[in-house]
Design a protein around this nucleic acid. Structure first.
Length: 393
DNA sequence: GTCCAACCCATTC
DNA sequence: GTCAGACCAATTCGG
DNA sequence: CCGAATTGGTCTGACGAATGGGTTGGAC
């Protein structure tokens, strides 16, 4: 249920619905945490509301984790230094783990077979026949719910490949061919249920121990590399290892934390002319920025594409290059759309920014000629690759 | 009637 | 994925 | 001491990149 009205943003989502139902059927919001918990381990709004209406709070309390029914995934928060994370988690020993650039899988294993759920709890079992086999062979538990990151790999070197490669596996047709062309590996990072026992209320340390006892380490399967420490410097070092191994960064976990389905926990990912386009950008602007931009650009508006601009996209309004703004992005990807560096890395491919965002800084001290050049972007792209290659050796 | 490119929409991150 | 804004609860500040 | 102001946490919906698949409409 959604509505957007002019300048006002309104939203009615599932949680609001749960609130309303708690009020309607119980007369108060008191049962809300129980209802929320039930919803998060059995995310079917119709089912929850019906149970509440027919059986009341008792029925809600009787809802259990069930293999075959997806659980809303626990999510991660973001901080930008190891020190801040350690402080936030209470200055104690934590588990720092590689954060891989793949797709999150919630794996349900039972007698009848294995089911795979995506992050949004879609059934994607048919996409990964190879994963089903890996789970059948290498998970030493008849019934279990596990979470893993599935990553595309280079079969010869074992090296991890970018997310883009994995995306070829998300298809309805030609699954068998894609499976051969884009082989994958599994990095397990959580265990929510095993042999009919619900582990979601166990501290992470225990879940991880059980995970390690259940997942067999092979070329294609393993518990995700983890380090236990309370020292920010060790985490920084581990972070560098992770990046060097082609990961996005780290996820740092509270060893005492339970699995809070559907909630946000803690994590961390550290980072870091012609005028060909390299990205569109629509994130990072405050309302104030958006109000002021038309005024700043008014004098540079152009009815047609300015001759010194190279773009495959057609915007609503063109501007002659004038204003320089500062943007950051998580990395540079090969692009079928943006012409920056076209053909320099790969035939018919340019380069684009991944997760571009405005930093809030308008660089009045710079002219378009002073902005980052294509050469520099190509160099940045090559630097990214080197880091990955170094590990593969 | 058949085929294919262009478009839009879904999902992942 | 990132991010800004809205909203609510808890905490701190100022009269 | 109490009400006002600030802060922190959570939720929601804007927006970015990519790929695959369904639909549509024009060329033949």
């Amino acid at each position: 249920m959604r509505t957007v009205t002019g300048e006002l943003r309104l939203g009615v989502a599932d949680y609001t619905m749960l609130d309303a139902c708690a009020l309607a059927f119980l007369g108060s919001k008191e049962g809300r945490p129980l209802i929320e918990r039930a919803y998060n381990i059995h995310p079917d709004l119709g089912f929850i509301v019906e149970t509440l209406a027919v059986e009341g709070l008792e029925g809600i309390e009787a809802i259990r984790v069930e293999v075959g029914v997806p659980i809303r995934p626990m999510l991660a928060e973001r901080l930008n230094s190891a020190k801040a994370i350690i402080a936030k988690l209470g200055n104690k020993v934590v588990a720092a783990e590689y954060k891989l650039d793949g797709e999150r899988l919630q794996i349900h294993k039972r007698k009848e077979g294995v089911t795979l759920f995506s992050r949004r709890l879609e059934v994607i079992t048919h996409n990964y026949p190879d994963v089903l086999e890996l789970v059948a062979k290498n998970v030493a538990s008849r019934e279990a719910i596990l979470e893993a990151e599935v990553v595309a790999i280079n079969e010869d070197t074992g090296e991890y490949l970018p997310f883009q490669e994995l995306m070829h596996r998300r298809r309805k047709y030609g699954v068998a061919e894609a499976m051969k062309q884009y082989p994958v590996a599994l990095n397990f990072f959580d265990l929510l249920s095993a042999d009919r026992k619900d582990y979601t209320n166990f501290p992470y340390g225990k879940r991880r121990a059980k995970l390690e006892s259940v997942v067999k380490e092979t070329e294609r399967t393993r518990p995700v590399p983890a380090l236990r420490t309370a020292d920010p410097e060790e985490i920084e070092k581990f972070m560098e290892d992770a990046i060097a191994n082609g990961c996005e960064g780290l996820v740092v976990k509270d060893l005492d934390g339970v699995y809070r389905a559907g909630a946000r926990e803690f994590s961390w990912v550290k980072q870091k002319a012609n005028f060909p386009t390299v990205s569109k950008i629509g994130t990072g602007f405050t309302d104030e920025d958006l109000q002021k931009l038309p005024r700043l650009l008014k004098n540079y508006e152009s009815r047609v594409k300015p001759p010194n601009v190279e773009s495959n996209l057609v915007p609503d309004v063109w501007f002659r290059p004038h204003l320089v703004i500062e943007t950051i992005a998580s990395e540079i990807t090969l692009s079928p759309i943006h012409p920056a560096g076209m053909g320099r890395i790969r035939k018919e491919s340019g380069l684009a920014l991944r997760f571009p965002k405005f930093t809030g800084k308008i660089r009045n001290d710079k002219k378009p000629e002073d902005a980052t050049t294509v050469d520099e972007i190509v160099e940045m792209y090559n630097l990214q690759l080197k880091k990955v290659e170094r590990v593969a050796q």
